[in-house]
């Protein structure tokens, strides 16, 4: 599907590129590349659990990217949705015996509603004030979760979160007990969300988000209701982040308090920025590299977060487009070099 429409887009590109070249434009290969990565991850990595963690955080980073990369909204509120998705789906499964898909749907719904409320409040302010509001709300959510320890387990986290099978009524179709089976579920969900997000970002709605990122005052003067667009993208982002949170709780069989910490928001933001803002595939790269780095380095050196800081500084200063930007410029250089060879 994507290759076909991609071809149409690249044909158009000659006359009228839809966006700035090299940054956010049609890259027909990335959906395919994403699928390849998703298939190869559990094969290449030592454990399917690690691969699952990568895709879950890639999902959260992708949602963050919709805000930061496409709309220009720097939100420290993502942990609210991630944590709420984890708690709500876990509580639903524990107390109401919700099945797999009802629990995931609950997370999506809770994420969307919370994001609507957070969005309605924060979007009243711009720039630094917006950022501070999201920070404050995340702190509030954290202490709320800490205080409601009867529900959330407080500091100990919510233990014994089940991982229900894919079932039809009472018949179990696929058990997700094995790490690889659960990876399969997460991989399918990730691919679906990726393709949906890709489609959304290249729709009139997505193009308007870019316009808002570039110049809010002008976008408003052209007739766009900026607040409406911002709230819509907030809801979208919140729902996806909450889904990632729910999957994370199922992966760990546990919903730790750290899910709803400010640090979680930061981590998701760092993944998004290191991967490359404004590129969906970049979010996969960012989440993948940070989760892997953490996995490898934390075994060697407990202060590995220090290196993460160095990596972030390096990307911000030397690779403004993040890993994705670096990769595309490398590819372009290689292509130019090979075309030079042909001419010579």
């Amino acid at each position: 599907m994507d290759t076909k429409t991609g071809a149409v887009a690249s044909k158009r590109n000659g006359a009228t590129p839809l966006a700035r070249p090299g940054r956010i434009r049609w890259a027909p290969g990335t959906t395919l590349a994403m699928l390849v990565v998703v298939v190869l991850l559990p094969v290449v990595l030592p454990s399917a659990t690690l691969a699952t963690e990568i895709l879950i955080f890639a999902m959260a980073a992708l949602a963050c990217n919709l805000l930061l990369g496409y709309t220009g909204l720097l939100s420290f509120g993502q942990a609210i949705f991630f944590g709420a998705g984890a708690y709500c789906s876990a509580l639903g499964m524990l107390h109401w015996q919700l099945g797999l898909f009802s629990a995931l749907l609950l997370a999506l719904g809770v994420g969307a509603v919370l994001a609507l409320l957070v969005g309605l409040l924060c979007i009243r302010r711009k720039g630094i004030y917006f950022v501070m509001l999201t920070l404050a709300l995340t702190q509030m959510a954290y202490f709320l979760a800490y205080t409601l320890s009867d529900w959330t387990g407080g500091d100990n986290g919510l233990l014994g979160v089940p991982r229900p099978p894919i079932a039809l009524g009472d018949t179990t179709l696929v058990s997700l007990a094995s790490p690889l089976a659960f990876y399969g579920l997460v991989a399918v969900l990730f691919a679906v969300i990726y393709i949906m997000a890709r489609r959304i970002t290249s729709s009139p709605f997505g193009s308007t988000l870019l316009a808002i990122r570039e110049n809010e005052a002008r976008a408003a003067a052209l007739g766009y209701d900026i607040r409406l667009f911002k709230i819509m993208v907030f809801v979208l982002s919140g729902a996806i982040t909450a889904l990632a949170g729910a999957l994370y709780a199922m992966l760990l069989n546990f919903a730790p308090l750290s899910n709803i910490e400010l640090l979680m928001s930061e981590q998701i933001l760092i993944m998004t920025i290191i991967g490359g803002t404004g590129s969906l595939f970049g979010s996969l790269l960012g989440a993948g590299s940070i989760v892997l780095l953490g996995d490898i380095l934390s075994a060697i050196w407990p202060r590995w977060m220090l290196l993460l800081g160095v990596a972030l500084i390096a990307v911000v200063i030397f690779m403004r487009g993040g890993l994705w930007g670096g990769l595309t410029s490398l590819l372009q250089r290689a292509r130019r070099a090979s075309s030079h060879d042909k001419e010579a």
């Binding site: 429409t5 009228t16 590129p17 839809l18 966006a19 700035r20 940054r23 489609r199 959304i200 290249s202 729709s203 009139p204 709605f205 193009s207 308007t208 870019l210 316009a211 570039e214 110049n215 002008r218 976008a219 052209l222 007739g223 766009y224 209701d225 409406l228 667009f229 819509m232």
Partner: peptide, 29 residues
Amino acid sequence: FQELSVHENLRLAAQGVDGWKALNFWQRL
């Protein structure tokens, strides 16, 4: 919109007048 192409600037301007119809998630550009 400094970073967007000249054509995209004009296309966004043409799209804006349709108001809420730009809230279209699914149609391709």
